[in-house]
Nucleic acid binder design. Structure first.
Length: 466
RNA sequence: GCUCCCUUCGUCUAGAGGCCUAGGACACGGCCCUCUCAAGGCUGUAACACGGGUUCGAAUCCCGUAGGGAGCGCCA
């Protein structure tokens, strides 16, 4: 039974364009997308590029490319606009400035002249004395004269939010349930950097609210950031979105997914030949339980998505499960589609033959070599099969083949008569000699695709030097 | 250090006090099918972190313990 959502939910994905689309981010984007689609709401793409140093346009474009490849179409975004434009934070400076002015006018924010070194030292001292490393409030009570003095010294201030004391912040987390924090555990944090750009806590919260996001879905690592964003929104009189914190996606060793786990970006999986539907099927089940166990086509996932079944515990990414969904997806594709996916101009009959022996495009390479090329060196098991069959067997096979028994059915019939062998003893040596492997697609049709001269040569080679 | 979060088979998860001698999926093993592999069918191994409560009854509620994780950044 899927969730009954009387109200359309507006969700968003707000990546910073500082790298490729990580699988973990792809997953939260996907869940957000599904939630919006399921409820008939909107899905917004917002680019958090206030860090000019690290943000790059090429990352933004790559991010959007991966999102599209996965089929996560957004209703509002930097490329298509929308009622809350612009959708790149680097272009929203004017909006932020108004809010800063509002905060400063009410003494809910104040300039801080502490240098990065000052702060680092302070944190170090706090840590050493067993205190939480929080901003000490040094600049909170500065008079106008003191501020002027610091400006005169050439110090460029940041803007800090003045966190109110003795406040209890409560919110209902969509995945964790009721949460309760004390504002006394929160230090005054920076909402504007000394270069005038906006800091994450600020623009992220403010934009979610201003853009009409009703449900923020993000990683667990943001859980304890939420109360400070709520405080900020409250101070500004802005509407609070709902928040939901999903357990992180981790690698096989339990550590957050990173480079040393191999592929971690959507792009890398795509380049290896994974299909977007396979990845979606996998992500759908990582930290989420839908109402079905089976494979789902991409466009049906929204109907089976259950936001109330989002996971709290970290989910391990296991490639063997992805491989399973890859196979399931492949099974449902037409020969034409698979041929395009393989991208090698293979004849349709060849694709049809090998499709069940291929999970990734690279798996097709050896089969292509069987039909037009040279065989790989034999493996241990294969050599044993050849040796067990014996030279005479292959001499007989080559002879029979040369006499015109080029069809497997005829070939085995003649060989059965001449050598007395049958079953696996008959087929396996032929399979190995002809294809180089003990496993593979059906042999008869495969043999038809091997040039006669090549087939003969392969049989003969084992009659001579084994 | 402080605050917060997490903990069911190897993995992903179902489970919202009795329907649980804990279900499904992936992986793994066996059997069937079969020239092989894959697919398919059948089948097997395998989990409630630990300790106390509450209750007629706890995987489910409460309290501790242990182990993981996050945040406390002029990163997002």
């Amino acid at each position: 039974m899927s969730a009954f959502n009387p109200l359309p939910v507006t969700t968003r994905f707000a990546p910073s364009p500082t790298g490729s689309l990580h699988l973990g981010n792809a997953r939260t984007a996907f869940f957000s997308y599904l939630w919006a689609r399921q409820s008939g709401g909107r899905f917004i793409l917002r680019i958090e590029d206030t860090d000019a140093e690290r943000s790059q346009l090429r990352f933004r474009d790559a991010l959007m490319g991966e999102l599209r490849w996965l089929g996560l179409e957004w209703d509002e975004g930097p490329d298509i606009g929308g009622p809350s434009a612009p959708y790149s934070q680097s272009e929203r400076g004017e909006f932020y400035r108004q809010l800063y002015a509002q905060l400063e006018a009410r003494d809910q924010a104040y300039p801080c002249y502490c240098t990065a070194e000052d702060l680092e030292l302070s944190r170090k001292l706090q840590r050493m004395s067993g205190q939480p490393p929080r901003y000490a409030g040094t600049c909170r009570g500065l008079s106008a004269a003191q501020r002027a003095e610091r400006v005169a010294r050439g110090l460029k201030p940041t803007l800090r939010f003045a966190v109110p004391k003795d406040q209890i912040i409560e919110f209902a987390d969509a995945v964790h349930g009721p949460q309760r924090f004390s504002s006394n555990d929160i230090g005054d944090f920076i909402i504007r950097r000394d270069d005038g750009t906006s800091a994450f806590f600020f623009c992220n919260a403010v934009d979610d609210s201003a853009m009409g996001v009703t449900q923020v879905l993000r990683g667990d690592d943001h859980m304890t950031n939420t109360p400070r964003q709520l405080l900020l929104l409250d101070a500004l009189g802005l509407r609070r979105p709902g928040y939901g914190h999903v357990g992180l996606l981790v690698g096989e060793d339990g550590a957050p997914l990173s480079k040393r786990h191999g592929s971690t970006s959507a792009q890398e999986f795509r380049e290896r030949g994974f299909l977007s539907t396979a990845i979606l099927n996998q992500l759908f089940r990582l930290g989420h339980a839908g109402d079905t166990d089976g494979w789902l086509p991409a466009d049906q996932m929204r109907a089976h998505f259950r936001p109330q079944h989002l996971g709290r515990a970290p989910a391990r990414f296991d490639e063997s499960q992805l491989l399973h969904w890859q196979k399931e997806t492949l099974e449902r594709m037409s020969t034409t589609e698979i041929r395009a996916w393989l991208g090698a101009e293979d004849p349709a009959e060849f694709v049809d033959l090998i499709r069940h022996n291929v999970v990734l495009p690279a798996d097709a390479v050896p089969w292509r070599a069987v039909v037009r090329g040279d065989l790989q060196p034999l493996g241990e098991g294969e050599r044993r099969i050849i040796a067990a069959a014996g030279r005479e067997f292959f001499a007989a096979a080559a002879a029979a083949y040369t006499e015109g028994n080029s069809e497997l059915k005829m070939l085995t019939k003649v060989l059965k008569e001449r050598t007395g062998r049958k079953g696996a003893d008959l087929f396996m040596p032929l399979r190995v000699a002809l294809t180089g492997s003990a496993h593979g697609p059906e042999l008869a049709p495969l043999l038809k695709l091997i040039p006669p001269e090549t087939a003969r040569r392969r049989l003969e080679s084992h009659a001579q030097n084994s």
